[in-house]
Design a protein around this nucleic acid. Structure first.
Lengths: 224, 224
DNA sequence: CGATCTATGTCGGCT
DNA sequence: AGCCGACGTAGATCG
């Protein structure tokens, strides 16, 4: 990893064209050749960058200025014109053991599969990832009356999810063995537009309390 | 901007929980307090981070180790346990003038508005951003027979875009002055699922060659 | 390898 | 400020 702080101007040409006027920035050159151009603000996204695989060539322009030309695949090019170097160091970091994540949406599906009644009283699970021609339904359940209920689970409930569930319901309701199938749209948070659309289509919205579900998920229940 | 290279262990708790085992990494602390943890590979995305607004407190654990606690909004917390500092410098970058982009997809709409016949023979433009109650239709056109044609433009044509155009068409076809309105789904690239859904709904797919259109867009045509 | 889905998405534009 | 759509989306998972 090489870290350079320099006054520089950056031009990118690839899927779009972008330009950064001359200013002082941090340049990171990673071991795989990828390059990041960071300013002193914003978020984790660099002002500009080149993803691996790519190659950096250090050259000199006709004016005698140092210029880095980073070429990626598909004719992507990043040109960095260096005006003044304030800092330039290299560091051996070694391989990173990598990030361990915990607690995302697959987990939410597992919890709801274990506690379907938290979505509606008496709801029982038929199966997870119930297959259809256009993709798997997250949960297929039965209500107290024995009618089929398709559940679509999202971390954040937006309009896409309602459309998705609508397509499933339309397909499932063509099957006389299942029909009528009603839908439940479950998410930790449901956007107003999504709720309106769902309600308009007769789909029930269920806001899921992840922490409460996790609390219900007593590990001692799992004896196998 | 402070740049630290150190052996460190990182733990994040917020919308999810994540952990990075002890290893050597680069830590960037930006002027706004945001923190980035980078390894020597991957892409421009850090292994872990905290977005502004946030605050860094440098402390010492009971074991006597240096620990940074970065707190964001909504109880997001990033704990960085520092084992050994290899490098630690600060740099004054000043404000960045910012990125200038030269757009892709607004331009695509402009080009298609100038050359609607590239979507279908004899197609002529009625107006761009044709207003409806649920949002503007990218292009409203008429075909050779004088019938209305609604065009939805995307850079990448996916299922969402077909849904969007479907909603427009449903609404537009309620207007007896316009009906029947047919749809064209135009994009530089159309995903198979989107194509299937569009076709099933009687929507025509049009793959747009951006470079060819740009070639047709002779600047001398614009005399004003 | 391609298709689909998620994301601590981030970012910009608009109401 | 909140909502919505685009992104040089990137990354993971699965057929």
């Amino acid at each position: 990893m090489r870290i350079v702080v320099a006054r520089c101007q950056v031009d990118y040409a690839g899927r779009l064209t972008a330009h950064l006027p001359m200013a002082t920035r941090v340049l990171m050159i990673k071991a795989d050749g990828s390059v990041l151009v960071h300013s002193d603000g914003g978020s984790y996204k660099p002002l500009n960058w080149m993803s691996p695989p790519c190659r950096v060539r250090e050259g000199v322009t006709d004016d005698g200025q140092v210029e880095w030309v980073v070429t990626g695949k598909d004719d992507d090019t990043l040109r960095i014109l260096i005006d003044e170097v304030r800092h330039d160091t290299s560091h051996d970091l070694g391989l990173d053991p990598g990030l361990q994540k915990d607690g995302v949406e697959k987990h939410l599906q597992e919890l709801l599969a274990e506690h379907p009644s938290s979505l509606a009283d008496g709801l029982t699970l038929v199966r997870r990832e119930y297959p259809t021609a256009i993709g798997p339904v997250d949960l297929m359940c039965r209500d107290v009356a024995g009618a089929s209920v398709a559940v679509e689970i999202k971390r954040r409930g937006e309009i896409d999810g309602v459309e998705q569930l609508t397509r499933y319901l339309e397909l499932l309701n063509r099957d006389p063995l299942l029909a009528p199938v009603r839908g439940i749209f479950a998410a930790q948070e449901i956007k107003p537009q999504a709720r309106v659309l769902a309600t308009d289509r007769g789909i029930t919205c269920a806001v899921v309390d992840y922490d409460a579900l996790r609390g219900m998920d007593d590990p001692t229940d799992r004896l196998f």
